[in-house]
């Protein structure tokens, strides 16, 4: 793979409206925090998509390894009692 000569990589998270969750929008290149924020603004909010932006250096993100998927995620698959729908609703508890 060719060396990436386009500065550091940053991940961009955007909030679409106040109070909403920040959602991963994509990534940008930048040499510093300020430039990362401006590049994120220019790349992802040109059509009024956001009200707030987070940028995080890509190498600061710790990702799970796909090889660990068995150990990480499979145990949740066969335990129906972890889901609220497994339980019978008590009579009269309308607000649940």
């Amino acid at each position: 793979m060719a060396t990436d000569s386009q500065l550091m990589e940053w991940e961009v998270f955007m909030q679409s409206k106040p109070g909403a969750n920040y959602i991963h929008a994509g990534s940008v290149h930048a040499s510093d925090k300020k430039m990362a924020l401006q590049n994120a603004r220019d790349t992802y909010t040109r059509r009024g998509e956001g009200t707030s932006i987070w940028v995080v250096p890509s190498d600061a993100i710790v990702a799970s390894n796909p090889d660990d998927n068995d150990m990480f995620f499979d145990p949740a698959n066969d335990k129906v009692y972890r889901l609220p729908t497994y339980y019978v609703m008590p009579e009269g508890a309308k607000a649940i």
């Binding site: 290149h29 590049n39 220019d42 790349t43």
Partner: peptide, 10 residues
């Protein structure tokens, strides 16, 4: 870089 391309045309 691509990001600057977008900034200037923006």
């Amino acid at each position: 870089i691509l990001e600057e391309d977008l900034a200037l045309t923006n």
